[in-house]
Design a protein around this nucleic acid. Sequence first.
DNA 1: CTGTTAGCGCGTTCAA
DNA 2: TTGAACGCGCTAACAG
Lengths: 329, 329
Amino acid sequence: MASITDVAKRAGVGVSTVSKVMNNYSNISEATRKRVLDAVEELNYVPNAVASALSSKSSRRVALVVFINNQRQAIDEINMQYLFGAVNRAKEMKLEVLTVFSTELDGMSASQISRHFASLRIQAIILYGLSKENEEFHELIENDAYPFVVVDAPLEGPRISYVTVDHTKAQYDMMIHMIDEHNPKSVLYLAGRRNGYVTDLRLQGAVDACLERNVHLNAHYANFSETEAIAMTHKHAHDSNVIVCASDLMAIGAVSALKHMDIFRPVCGYDGITLLGYINYRIETVKQDFYDISVNAINAVMSLLEGNPGEGIIVPHRIIKISYEDVIM
Amino acid sequence: MASITDVAKRAGVGVSTVSKVMNNYSNISEATRKRVLDAVEELNYVPNAVASALSSKSSRRVALVVFINNQRQAIDEINMQYLFGAVNRAKEMKLEVLTVFSTELDGMSASQISRHFASLRIQAIILYGLSKENEEFHELIENDAYPFVVVDAPLEGPRISYVTVDHTKAQYDMMIHMIDEHNPKSVLYLAGRRNGYVTDLRLQGAVDACLERNVHLNAHYANFSETEAIAMTHKHAHDSNVIVCASDLMAIGAVSALKHMDIFRPVCGYDGITLLGYINYRIETVKQDFYDISVNAINAVMSLLEGNPGEGIIVPHRIIKISYEDVIM
DNA sequence: CTGTTAGCGCGTTCAA
DNA sequence: TTGAACGCGCTAACAG
């Protein structure tokens, strides 16, 4: 395995010249540049990223922390799309990505986590699905331990950016759409987890819309859980004309309950996951582009790494219907 | 950020002594060991993994290459479980894991891929979903470019291990089960991709069982595609008493077609994905534990890294029924 | 525009 | 049982 020294010798130049060529420094004559490149070619040289990281003190490594609260999240398409988007974009940006599931970090204190990442020479951290209750990471954020990019939580600061869809607007749009289409007297809203970032934002959108259209809103937390959505639906669907859910999984639960109750109610979800196409029920949803969100998260990391201040990035959403025909393509 | 030198000074010893303590060398007196550990504690020292990798020439980094042939695979739970298992086990083994989706590598030659990983100082590669057609990786395997662990392809050698369920046996078991339960004259078997590793193995199991029970086997490739499974079912279901599929997705397609045709046939799948619980059809499947498979893949990597010869690891499977009630828990 | 040199933090001889 | 010194491969002054 050829090293930079070998290339330097072969090209008859100094190592720093080779380094400059490899890193696209401008002040290199075309002549020597070519000689170096030739030597690189002949020796099949490839820079040692590890050595580079050590020397430059810039590892270009970023951790993707995926919060998993239940087995279900360990299999879902949302996190997969997050990973896919981040990995692909990171490759383009020549960043190295370390995938971390929150379960690995269970039981560690903030400082242990910090040291863990320090040991790995992580330069920035992206948080997917951070909840308000996670004290360790909030402590790290407080301490400005790393540059952070948070997905779906409006945390902003000098070294912290966020990327999210406008959940309030999205839920508002969805709710208005349902109200205008079905003209309900009362709508059952199944919210997420009490005091959760996106839960609150979406709930706000639901409230706004119902206030504006003057329809009664019956809102309950169902913890993003299919099971709880089933229970809530059994309990409240009779008194509601429409069911609006803060996640597709809850919507699926609601539909399941409705079928069991043998009554019909218009239902809508939130997220736009493939699974929605399988349940054989007319249902619309807020489509989030998780891949794109993650691409933006990587972009935000790059920006932070370049010394720019944190910013908030809003990714567009759409209201769509997912059908089986779409899904099987 | 304290370095090994700081610790050495603080403890009043040489750096190499610190190094030895950190790496659990035996020839260190308890006294100095303790002094070092105290210094480590006081300074909050954490070893620099990057420097360690450079110095020792052992990065402990392994690449997880996930082959993606269609958008669908980029969202599915199988790959997510693979990643989850690998990441968790790698953490325990103090390995660092680099997630790579095959799409990133598209268009690269074998040597480019090799150099890419060389640059990243990857020491071993795990392949998920390798197909026989992938020339680049087969070339790398031929050239013994890296230690490899292949999931679901029976490739074995001095520096290549595999881990898989016994697909032939599993499909055989499933087929026998269906035959004995439903007593079909003729069974429709929807196989995967022509000339694929697992496709051939499973097909063999199906053939063996039908031969043994003396039932007619009508086998067709459906490319692991829901759409093609639908087409095949429309075409052949009328002439068959039972439909056995080499994947759950194809089984779901078959069920969808059957509903559309308004006829009933016993159907079984293969994989054991959650989605199966949503289709409201009595259906059994071969359950693979993808998480466990991946854990074993990491174990196999460790073994290879320690210089042991490649080996084949068989992970157990089960025949189960996935119901909605199981899924929503 | 180019080459020399001094680290980066750690593992690893090899003397002591 | 310990520590000084060298080197891993590269980047970043600095000098020319």
